[in-house]
Nucleic acid binder design. Structure first.
Lengths: 167, 167
DNA sequence: TGGCATAATGTTATATCATCACAATTAACT
DNA sequence: AGTTAATTGTGATGATATAACATTATGCCA
């Protein structure tokens, strides 16, 4: 059976609604873990949520610096590392970039769809995929701690726009 | 049902046997594609095969340079890019490193198991996982071109050795 | 409240990874 | 041999990330 008419995560996304919920959830979760969402950390998360894109550390830094926070790389890297460690932000390896997690409530292994046509990134997930990774780990006697799953290709709009050419 | 007694890809691997086969296969494939395995490219592949590890571009460069090839970064990066494009080498995103593909005969989406205890990397694959990615792509109307699947954790030996502590 | 320990922030400096631009060489094909 | 395209080499620079250490803020509790 085909799955129900999924929304297209690249284009059918109510961002304002999700941002608020994510931020609220972040506070709850961090409190439970005894961690502090300090001003820099909070702004860093907000910046990523507002942009709704994968941003490089130096892009984030520029925004933070312009708002009166420190201007040196560690300022951004530390805030990002904190958020990543608490599952509020993911690192997109292929882009050397960071994106706010949009479903922090689930204990998930995120999957990123990276469109090379429009450079947008969509976060999704799949229980089949988690199961497959679990099986792989078992049969290789490997203890999983973190997974990176990134799919590079073209989103539907870019395909429609004829962005076929593959480098 | 458990899968049959899989070999542990970290420790039960006949490397000499596979290296020769891989190299031989590389020649065949490249000829078919009209691409040339020049001396630098060949040595780059051999170096990765011999080390049987994921190596950084600058590590490869050092080896190449010591053997009389050029000493500037582009020398290594170009050879690696060529090999990656032809599916003979994979890039391990999490490590900013490169590893020779050990099963270049299959049209595969590789999966890397990265042990943070001993820093070894094992390449594997899974048809379940490929299927899950295919399903995800379909339900998100996404056209897949390349996939990155990397699993960070501990190999069996490192678990046995008590490398439990998680940063 | 004052004093201590810890965590967080800020800065300078530097390490690491990757690419640009252009010259020199080599290979492939008339 | 002559022409073109691919490949290689080099210097310079760009982009990403961390080390080391001083300073400030926070939490705790005597």
């Amino acid at each position: 059976m085909p799955t129900p008419p999924d929304p297209d995560p690249f284009h059918d996304h109510d961002h304002d609604a999700c941002s608020g919920a994510v931020l609220e959830h972040a506070l709850t979760r961090l409190e439970a873990e005894g961690a502090r969402l300090t001003p820099v950390r909070r702004r860093t998360l907000e910046i990523l949520l507002e942009s709704h894109r994968a941003m490089g550390a130096y892009d984030v830094l520029q925004r933070l610096s312009a708002e009166g926070f420190g201007s040196q790389p560690p300022v951004a890297y530390r805030a990002l590392e904190f958020l990543v460690n608490h599952g509020l932000v993911h690192r997109v390896q292929r882009l050397n970039a960071y994106a706010a997690c949009l479903s922090p409530q689930k204990d998930h292994s995120p999957v990123f769809l990276i469109c090379r046509g429009c450079d947008k990134v969509a976060e999704t997930g799949s229980s089949d995929l988690r199961a497959a990774i679990g099986g792989l780990a078992t049969s290789n006697r490997f203890t999983v701690e973190r997974t990176t799953v990134e799919i590079l290709g073209l989103c539907s709009q870019c395909v429609a726009a004829g962005a076929e050419a593959r480098a």
